[in-house]
Measured scan of single mutants.
Amino acid sequence: KLATQLLVDLAEGCHTHHFNSLLDIIEKVMARSLSPPPELEERDVAAYSASLEDVKTAVLGLLVILQTKLYTLPASHATRVYEMLVSHIQLHYKHSYTLPIASSIRLQAFDFLLLLRADSLHRLGLPNKDGVVRFSPYCVCDYMEPERGSEKKTSGPLSPPTGPPGPAPAGPAVRLGSVPYSLLFRVLLQCLKQESDWKVLKLVLGRLPESLRYKVLIFTSPCSVDQLCSALCSMLSGPKTLERLRGAPEGFSRTDLHLAVVPVLTALISYHNYLDKTKQREMVYCLEQGLIHRCASQCVVALSICSVEMPDIIIKALPVLVVKLTHISATASMAVPLLEFLSTLARLPHLYRNFAAEQYASVFAISLPYTNPSKFNQYIVCLAHHVIAMWFIRCRLPFRKDFVPFITKGLRSNVLLSFDDTPEKDSFRARSTSLNERPKSLRIARPPKQGLNNSPPVKEFKESSAAEAFRCRSISVSEHVVRSRIQTSLTSASLGSADENSVAQADDSLKN
Results as ranks from 00 to 15, higher is better:
residue 191 C to V: 04
residue 142 D to P: 02
residue 187 V to A: 10
residue 249 P to I: 04
residue 214 Y to G: 04
residue 71 Y to S: 03
residue 181 Y to W: 07
residue 137 P to M: 04
residue 191 C to G: 02
residue 181 Y to A: 03
residue 78 A to Y: 02
residue 208 L to E: 01
residue 145 E to L: 11
residue 241 T to V: 11
residue 60 L to E: 14
residue 151 E to D: 14
residue 105 I to R: 00
residue 182 S to G: 04
residue 70 L to H: 01
residue 157 P to I: 14
residue 78 A to T: 05
residue 150 S to G: 12
residue 210 E to W: 05
residue 225 V to S: 02
residue 212 L to G: 01
residue 149 G to D: 14
residue 229 C to R: 01
residue 90 Q to K: 10
residue 156 G to D: 09
residue 183 L to K: 10
residue 85 L to Q: 00
residue 198 W to R: 00
residue 59 V to K: 01
residue 66 L to N: 01
residue 203 L to K: 08
residue 221 S to W: 01
residue 81 V to E: 00
residue 121 L to Y: 11
residue 207 R to N: 04
residue 131 G to H: 05
residue 102 A to V: 01
residue 238 G to P: 03
residue 95 H to I: 04
residue 242 L to H: 08
residue 55 V to Y: 01
residue 100 P to F: 01
residue 85 L to R: 02
residue 64 V to E: 15
residue 242 L to G: 04
residue 225 V to D: 00
residue 226 D to K: 05
residue 64 V to M: 11
residue 232 L to R: 00
residue 130 D to E: 09
residue 51 S to Q: 12
residue 235 M to F: 07
residue 223 C to G: 06
residue 190 Q to L: 09
residue 131 G to V: 02
residue 158 L to C: 14
residue 239 P to N: 13
residue 75 A to C: 09
residue 76 S to F: 06
residue 131 G to N: 08
residue 100 P to D: 08
residue 190 Q to K: 11
residue 226 D to R: 04
residue 152 K to M: 12
residue 126 L to T: 05
residue 61 G to S: 02
residue 191 C to L: 01
residue 134 R to D: 05
residue 140 V to E: 02
residue 53 E to S: 09
residue 127 P to Y: 04
residue 144 M to V: 10
residue 190 Q to H: 08
residue 216 V to D: 06
residue 123 R to T: 02
residue 165 P to E: 13
residue 98 T to N: 12
residue 155 S to A: 13
residue 166 G to H: 12
residue 172 P to S: 08
residue 102 A to Y: 03
residue 227 Q to P: 02
residue 185 F to D: 01
residue 230 S to N: 08
residue 160 P to T: 12
residue 138 Y to R: 03
residue 72 T to S: 14
residue 225 V to C: 06
residue 248 A to R: 10
residue 159 S to C: 13
residue 229 C to M: 04
residue 199 K to V: 13
residue 186 R to K: 11
residue 196 S to K: 07
residue 59 V to I: 07
residue 196 S to N: 07
residue 81 V to K: 00
residue 153 K to E: 13
residue 203 L to Y: 05
residue 177 G to E: 15
residue 247 G to C: 09
residue 62 L to S: 07
residue 136 S to E: 02
residue 92 H to R: 00
residue 67 Q to N: 08
residue 239 P to W: 08
residue 210 E to V: 13
residue 151 E to M: 12
residue 217 L to E: 02
residue 144 M to R: 08
residue 120 S to T: 08
residue 92 H to S: 01
residue 159 S to E: 14
residue 100 P to L: 02
residue 215 K to N: 04
residue 186 R to N: 11
residue 227 Q to W: 03
residue 244 R to N: 09
residue 95 H to Y: 08
residue 241 T to G: 05
residue 152 K to A: 13
residue 128 N to I: 05
residue 83 E to T: 10
residue 50 A to F: 07
residue 69 K to A: 03
residue 191 C to F: 01
residue 182 S to Q: 04
residue 227 Q to V: 07
residue 149 G to R: 10
residue 155 S to Q: 13
residue 242 L to I: 10
residue 49 S to L: 05
residue 102 A to Q: 01
residue 218 I to H: 07
residue 190 Q to Y: 07
residue 149 G to N: 12
residue 190 Q to D: 10
residue 74 P to L: 01
residue 118 A to K: 02
residue 75 A to M: 06
residue 63 L to S: 12
residue 198 W to N: 00
residue 184 L to G: 05
residue 59 V to G: 03
residue 234 S to G: 13
residue 160 P to M: 07
residue 78 A to L: 02
residue 214 Y to L: 04
residue 101 I to L: 07
residue 182 S to K: 03
residue 63 L to D: 02
residue 147 E to M: 11
residue 175 R to A: 10
residue 79 T to H: 06
residue 162 T to N: 13
residue 68 T to E: 09
residue 166 G to M: 10
residue 82 Y to S: 01
residue 50 A to M: 10
residue 224 S to I: 04
residue 203 L to P: 02
residue 150 S to V: 11
residue 226 D to E: 13
residue 249 P to N: 14
residue 244 R to M: 05
residue 151 E to V: 08
residue 165 P to W: 14
residue 252 F to R: 02
residue 84 M to I: 07
residue 70 L to F: 05
residue 132 V to H: 09
residue 197 D to Y: 03
residue 53 E to M: 08
residue 151 E to C: 12
residue 134 R to C: 06
residue 133 V to Q: 04
residue 52 L to E: 02
residue 125 G to V: 02
residue 216 V to N: 08
residue 249 P to K: 07
residue 164 P to W: 13
residue 240 K to R: 08
residue 105 I to V: 05
residue 105 I to P: 00
residue 57 T to I: 07
residue 79 T to P: 07
residue 164 P to E: 10
residue 70 L to N: 01
residue 134 R to Y: 06
residue 50 A to T: 13
residue 64 V to D: 14
residue 226 D to W: 02
residue 198 W to A: 01
residue 94 K to S: 11
residue 197 D to A: 03
residue 186 R to I: 04
residue 141 C to L: 04
residue 164 P to H: 14
residue 231 A to T: 08
residue 141 C to K: 02
residue 72 T to D: 07
residue 182 S to R: 03
residue 82 Y to I: 04
residue 96 S to G: 12
residue 94 K to W: 06
residue 186 R to L: 04
residue 155 S to Y: 11
residue 64 V to A: 15
residue 200 V to F: 01
residue 241 T to C: 12
residue 51 S to V: 06
residue 241 T to D: 05
residue 54 D to S: 04
residue 82 Y to T: 02
residue 221 S to L: 02
residue 182 S to T: 05
residue 195 E to L: 00
residue 61 G to V: 00
residue 234 S to Q: 13
residue 160 P to G: 12
residue 67 Q to T: 06
residue 94 K to R: 10
residue 123 R to C: 04
residue 102 A to R: 00
residue 248 A to I: 10
residue 123 R to I: 01
residue 192 L to F: 04
residue 233 C to Y: 05
residue 227 Q to G: 07
residue 88 H to F: 00
residue 105 I to H: 00
residue 92 H to N: 01
residue 94 K to N: 12
residue 95 H to R: 12
residue 106 R to Y: 00
residue 60 L to M: 12
residue 241 T to P: 09
residue 225 V to G: 01
residue 94 K to P: 01
residue 159 S to R: 09
residue 244 R to L: 05
residue 250 E to K: 13
residue 204 V to F: 00
residue 179 V to R: 02
residue 235 M to G: 01
residue 194 Q to Y: 07
residue 67 Q to K: 11
residue 134 R to V: 09
residue 225 V to A: 05
residue 140 V to I: 09
residue 117 R to A: 03
residue 163 G to S: 12
residue 211 S to P: 05
residue 179 V to G: 03
residue 214 Y to F: 10
residue 209 P to D: 04
residue 144 M to N: 12
residue 141 C to A: 05
residue 70 L to Y: 01
residue 222 P to Y: 04
residue 60 L to C: 13
residue 238 G to F: 06
residue 118 A to P: 08
residue 61 G to E: 00
residue 129 K to W: 11
residue 150 S to P: 13
residue 179 V to S: 03
residue 198 W to I: 01
residue 246 R to E: 11
residue 252 F to W: 06
residue 145 E to A: 07
residue 105 I to E: 00
residue 185 F to A: 02
residue 235 M to I: 10
residue 200 V to C: 04
residue 162 T to K: 13
residue 206 G to R: 12
residue 95 H to C: 11
residue 233 C to H: 04
residue 191 C to T: 04
residue 58 A to V: 01
residue 155 S to D: 13
residue 185 F to R: 01
residue 96 S to Q: 14
residue 155 S to T: 13
residue 144 M to I: 13
residue 227 Q to L: 08
residue 196 S to F: 08
residue 54 D to K: 00
residue 157 P to G: 13
residue 234 S to C: 07
residue 158 L to Q: 14
residue 236 L to T: 05
residue 161 P to W: 13
residue 198 W to M: 01
residue 94 K to Q: 09
residue 133 V to H: 07
residue 142 D to H: 05
residue 207 R to Q: 04
residue 70 L to G: 02
residue 143 Y to I: 12
residue 208 L to G: 00
residue 204 V to W: 00
residue 190 Q to F: 06
residue 158 L to I: 11
residue 101 I to R: 01
residue 77 H to R: 03
residue 145 E to Q: 10
residue 69 K to P: 00
residue 137 P to G: 04
residue 241 T to H: 07
residue 74 P to R: 02
residue 56 K to F: 05
